[in-house]
Simulated assay, not measured.
Amino acid sequence: MDGQPAGERAAGVVREVDALGALGFAAEESDLREYFGAEAGVLAEVFGEADLLWLRGGNAFVLRAALALSGADAVLAGLLREDAVAYGGYSAGGCVLAPSLRGLEACDDPAEVGRAYGRPAVWDGLGLLPYAFVPHVDSPGHPESQVLGEVAERYRADGTPYLALRDGQALVVDGELSEVV
């Protein structure tokens, strides 16, 4: 949400922390912008103290760029490979796990990365899932449902492996096993 006005972003953080707190998590924000250009060990230490890393929605390109600029992409991938932390999130937080963000420009503006960080968009995903991730499909009331349905249809037509989820569904991955619930 770094491309959004500061007040809107801050209100979103409060909502996220409060919602996670209501579920029993002791949640706090780790603003990746604070780690842009920092040594990987610093962020690895911060992330290593967590049981769960929650990546919220927003613009997938902005989130992916923040992960790259902070080194969180490598730290996160390493922690997940070691099964040292659980990963949760929604929308953009799921999209960045794919091999690529290509196709998502239909709903998220890659140019927002330039406006937020003065850098070009990163089009490669983290590659932690073997397929594209398409949230909000067939989700009445979600403003991006239709366009993301079209993204899923384009992936299908192009033969691009993908997983489409409706709001209220979750992908649970445990080792080699995965299930949509």
Rank of each mutant, 00 (worst) to 15 (best):
G21C: 01
L63M: 15
L79H: 03
L148H: 09
V17F: 02
V96M: 08
L97V: 03
S30H: 11
L20R: 07
S70H: 13
L163T: 00
E105G: 15
D167C: 06
L20N: 04
G118V: 11
L163W: 00
D109H: 12
D18R: 15
F36Q: 11
G125F: 02
A74T: 09
D174H: 02
E150P: 04
H136V: 01
R33L: 11
A170G: 08
V180F: 11
Y87M: 06
G118L: 13
A22H: 15
E153V: 01
R15T: 03
E39M: 01
R156M: 08
R81Y: 02
L76N: 00
D124W: 10
P143R: 10
A152F: 05
A98T: 05
C107N: 11
G103H: 06
V180W: 10
G48W: 00
R156F: 10
G78E: 03
G78P: 03
R15H: 12
A86E: 06
G12A: 08
E34Q: 13
D138K: 12
L23F: 07
R102L: 15
Q146Y: 12
G103W: 03
G141M: 12
R56Y: 13
V75D: 04
A26E: 13
G149P: 06
D73R: 08
E39K: 03
P99R: 02
S91G: 08
A92G: 01
V172A: 13
E34Y: 07
V137R: 05
D124N: 13
V96E: 02
A111S: 10
A86Q: 08
D73T: 09
